[in-house]
């Protein structure tokens, strides 16, 4: 009786063991793949570079990478043949932007337009991801300071250094909807220490919307629009509207665009744009971005 019991038990074990063995290599692989699928998959390359046209995208440069940006805005296209449709004049910005970590970068720049220096940080607060950690959007915070070094309009009165300063705080909420389509919203607050007219507000608010559609693997069509809130804008300024292309060629990204803004730092193009597309106040321009790897990635 006891022997019988042992027999059946061992038979049972033998059978279960065999069924476990019968599990084939593909099944095991499927099991492992399912386990791995739970890992968090962060969305990358929402945009090709850290700028859309004039303004920032949600992208950062990688840790240890230096992005040298050279940007030009030519004169107004409606300048006619005498000005070669604006090509006779150009303002230029040179910028150096460095990735301190993969989520924090810093940049400085100098623009010939109104002899402006600018400096900024960009911090990725949230990263779009799926899998273990699901996050629908990427959120970045970009504080920028600008220093206008043009001579004061009235040198006879007492001028303060702080009158040259402009502060911009921007949130960027971006989402890569598909391989080719990305959109972002950019609520933007600008503070000016000195304004021209007593009626001009010191604090300005705007909301931007921008996006890209890839045309091929290496070329995308971009647009960017900043709407200024009527009560928080300066008189006689217009909303900045820009369209352009990104062309990526290995280490470089070339951006060619048309915009009604001449300035290349936030307080300039968001709050001081005066050009009107309908009147032909369109500036042709380009940005060239070249990334050098300086520090270690890990």
């Amino acid at each position: 009786m006891l022997l019988n019991k042992i027999f059946y038990t061992s038979l049972f074990f033998s059978v279960t063991c065999c069924s476990a063995v019968a599990q084939d290599t593909t099944d095991i692989m499927r099991l492992l793949e399912n386990e791995v699928a739970d890992r968090t998959d962060y969305t990358t390359a929402t945009f090709k570079t850290t700028r859309l046209v004039n303004g920032h995208t949600v992208e950062n440069v990688g840790k240890g990478a230096l992005d040298v940006k050279i940007s030009h805005r030519f004169g107004k296209v409606n300048g006619g043949g005498y000005e070669l449709f604006g090509l006779d004049n150009a303002s230029m910005r040179m910028g150096f932007e460095y990735g301190i970590t993969n989520t924090l970068m810093a940049g400085v720049g100098r623009s010939t337009f109104q002899k402006t220096y600018d400096a900024f940080f960009k911090l990725k607060v949230l990263r779009q991801s799926k899998g273990n950690r699901n996050m629908p959007v990427t959120l970045s915070y970009v504080p920028t300071i600008a220093l206008k070094t043009l001579k004061f309009e009235d040198e006879t009165r007492k001028n303060y250094f702080t009158s040259r300063l402009f502060f911009t705080h921007q949130l960027i909420i971006g989402r890569k909807f598909s391989e080719g389509t990305s959109l972002q919203l950019m609520p933007t607050y600008t503070h000016r220490n000195l304004v021209q007219l007593a009626s001009d507000p010191n604090d300005l608010l705007a909301i931007g919307i921008g996006g890209r559609q890839k045309i091929s693997k290496r070329v995308s069509l971009n647009f960017e629009y900043y709407y200024q809130l009527p009560d928080y804008k300066m008189l006689n300024t217009t909303n900045s509207l820009s369209v352009g292309f990104d062309i990526e060629t290995g280490g470089h990204v070339f951006q060619l665009h048309f915009t009604n803004s001449q300035a290349m730092s936030e307080r300039g193009f968001v709050t001081e744009t005066t050009g009107e597309w309908s009147k032909g106040d369109i500036f042709f321009g380009f940005n060239i971005s070249r990334v050098f790897t300086i520090g270690k990635k890990h």
């Binding site: 692989m29 791995v36 440069v61 990688g62 993969n102 290995g250």
Partner: peptide, 30 residues
């Protein structure tokens, strides 16, 4: 991921392409 059946010799590999890490961030992106 790698599975080997020591009796039949069946061998399988599987990996996620995003798991490749390059020296330069831009290389990885491209």
């Amino acid at each position: 991921l790698c599975v080997l059946n020591t009796q039949t010799g069946e061998l399988q590999f599987s990996l996620l392409n995003k798991g490749f890490h390059f020296e330069k961030a831009l290389m990885e992106e491209h």
